[in-house]
């Protein structure tokens, strides 16, 4: 019985983990290139959720089609924020960038609240279910998982097969060297920042496909914290690392729940989160480049 539950939870965790991973790629990309931790990360996920909600509930647009729309909106937001704020803070101490990104998050939350109100919303996209014996999956969850994997692959191709991608890559490795080689470092920064934000907003769409309820302006906070753990699992500066970090995180979170639940007198969910932060600290100490990197 317990084993069956464990198996079911692990499979659920893997699917959820893919979406979590995708939701962290933007954070890792921005950190990798600009060395800026986007503390307002969750707010951008929230924007994606609202894009989906709005498109689905008012125009009846399929959430899958909301992904490119959200991505474009995110790119736009990213460019605006980069040129108004981040550009001037690239060389500033951590303090400034941490506070700036946090404030951007608050700004977005309050704007969305002004437009949509603070109601908890949701949408109901009916596409059927699939029963795999140990657990049941709504198709929407599987689409979210497949979409996430697809986006990770696309990002990989972009990095490795396009000129702009390799320019960004060279900036990650050595920004001074890249400048000497004639690469437009400022442009690469702007592009990666907005790409990161675009990915994050798009991931908001996929997350709502997984959990299509509880959408409200302040929903992002929890995802920011999860994204930190996942990003650290993946080495903090590698977007694909983050994707695999997400898978590992999903497995740990769901797997450890079943085990913690066997202990009497505890709150198992809280302990899974405790565990995830213990893992975060352990990785930061032992191998800050992440458990998946070869370095």
């Amino acid at each position: 019985m317990i084993l069956e539950q464990l198996a079911g939870n692990l499979i659920q965790g893997l699917v959820l983990g893919a979406v979590y991973g995708m939701a962290t790629m933007g954070l890792s990309l921005i950190f990798g290139v600009l060395k800026v931790v986007n503390v307002g990360h969750g707010a951008f996920i929230m924007v994606g959720a609202f894009v989906t909600l709005w498109l689905f509930n008012t125009l009846g647009i399929n959430p899958i089609l909301a992904v490119p729309v959200a991505f474009a909106i995110g790119m736009g937001l990213g460019f605006i924020f980069y040129y108004t704020t981040m550009q001037r803070l690239i060389k500033a101490p951590e303090l400034a960038t941490l506070l700036a990104t946090f404030s951007l998050g608050i700004l977005l939350e309050e704007l969305i609240k002004l437009i949509f109100g603070s109601e908890f919303r949701g949408y109901n996209w009916v596409v059927g279910k699939i029963n795999i014996g140990v657990t049941v999956f709504p198709m929407a969850k599987l689409y979210a998982c497949i979409g996430s994997a697809l986006i990770a692959v696309l990002l990989y191709l972009w990095f490795n097969k396009t000129r702009a991608g390799s320019a960004v890559r060279s900036v990650v490795e050595d920004s001074e060297g890249a400048r000497v080689c004639g690469i437009n470092v400022g442009g690469a920064y702007a592009l990666s920042f907005s790409l990161g934000i675009g990915l994050t907003v798009a991931s908001g769409v996929l997350l709502t496909m997984f959990i299509p309820v509880g959408i409200n302006p302040y929903m992002g906070g929890g995802y920011t914290l999860k994204a930190f753990v996942i990003a650290v699992l993946g080495g903090l500066s590698s977007p694909y690392g983050a994707f695999f970090g997400g898978l590992v995180f999903g497995l740990i979170e769901n797997g450890s729940y079943t085990i913690f639940a066997l202990l009497p007198g505890v709150e198992p969910f809280a302990l899974t989160r405790f565990l995830s932060f213990v893992i975060l600290l352990a990785i930061l100490l032992i191998k800050p480049t992440g458990i998946l990197s070869r370095k």
């Binding site: 539950q5 659920q12 959990i211 995802y223 729940y257 709150e267």
Partner: peptide, 20 residues
């Protein structure tokens, strides 16, 4: 009889135990 913390985003593991 179980609880889940504030701000939880996925209740699947709890619910599958509940189902059992």
């Amino acid at each position: 009889e179980r609880t889940y913390p504030k701000g939880v985003t996925d209740l699947t593991p709890l619910l599958s135990a509940l189902k059992a």
